[in-house]
């Protein structure tokens, strides 16, 4: 299968600070691609550019042979791209079900009313293991469930490409394994996943392809084994970073 997303020469500077410098990589359709790097490596900035929150200073983002560089983020849903946020942004005063219904209503299913969207939303909740808590407010659940809610809401828009921003941060090992299962299941339904993470274990078990970033630049790319054996990566990142 071909590439669903191609990024070439992507750069972003904030008032002179070069946050991302000339990054290029591809995301293969149907696969799970991971992006790792220590804090401040520019992962989230790349993510924000891919999802339209930030406009790149230079470079292009191509999605399904279509140049989407600099398009505002609300255009992405219809194209089949959905994202989660590193800092969780649940709709605090809306129930878990309503959170997901909102995603379903304005996603690619184009439901006309909340009633129509409800069935689909409940299906998503079953799938993500939130169904028992559908009437809760996000604030009444623990972090693992809040993270799941982020994923569920993004999933409700029926995306082809799902961007996950550190959805496993702050989870304990059991919860991480459960999350990995969930992402495998999502991938098995035909959704391509691009995820940012700094838990090496999760990335190694989940991803077929890994991009390593450091100081705003791509330093390595390949299968998890290739990357983990790359001497430069070991030196700058794995040597001190893989302790969480």
């Amino acid at each position: 299968m071909g590439n669903i997303l191609s990024i070439s020469g992507l750069s972003k500077s904030f008032r002179g600070l070069q946050a991302v410098n000339n990054v290029s990589f591809n995301v293969r359709e149907g696969g799970i691609t991971g992006m790792i790097g220590s804090n401040g490596a520019g992962k989230t900035t790349v993510f924000n550019m891919i999802s339209g929150v930030l406009v790149p200073t230079a470079g292009t983002i191509t999605y399904r042979d279509q140049d989407i560089t600099g398009k505002p983020s609300y255009c992405y849903t219809d194209m089949g791209i959905a994202r989660t946020f590193q800092i969780m942004k649940p709709l605090r005063h809306m129930s878990v079900l309503d959170n997901v219904i909102s995603g379903a209503l304005y996603g690619r299913k184009h439901y006309k009313s909340a009633k129509e969207a409800k069935e689909y939303a409940e299906e998503i909740l079953q799938f993500t293991g939130l169904y028992e808590r559908r009437n809760w407010l996000p604030g009444e659940m623990g972090t693992p469930f809040k993270k799941r809610l982020e994923v569920a809401r993004a999933l409700a828009t029926d995306p082809d490409l799902l961007l996950l921003d550190e959805v496993m941060a702050g989870l304990n090992p059991t919860e991480t394994d459960e999350a990995i299962e969930l992402f495998r299941a999502i991938n098995a339904r035909g959704t391509t996943i691009l995820l940012i993470e700094h838990i090496m274990h999760a990335v190694a078990t989940l991803c077929e392809e890994v991009v390593v970033m450091h100081h705003g630049e791509k330093v390595a790319e390949g299968t998890p084994e290739q990357v983990m054996n790359d001497p430069y990566v070991i030196e700058i990142y794995l040597g001190k970073g893989d302790d969480d």
């Binding site: 849903t77 809306m94 995603g103 009313s113 909340a114």
Partner: peptide, 26 residues
């Protein structure tokens, strides 16, 4: 309040970033 429009309004009230991420144009 119960309509599709209402969901958009309330989503924007809670968080504009989230609203944009699920395809709502604030």
């Amino acid at each position: 309040d119960g309509s599709k429009l209402g969901y958009a309004l309330k989503t924007i009230r809670e968080d504009e970033g989230t609203a944009e991420a699920i395809g709502i144009k604030p």
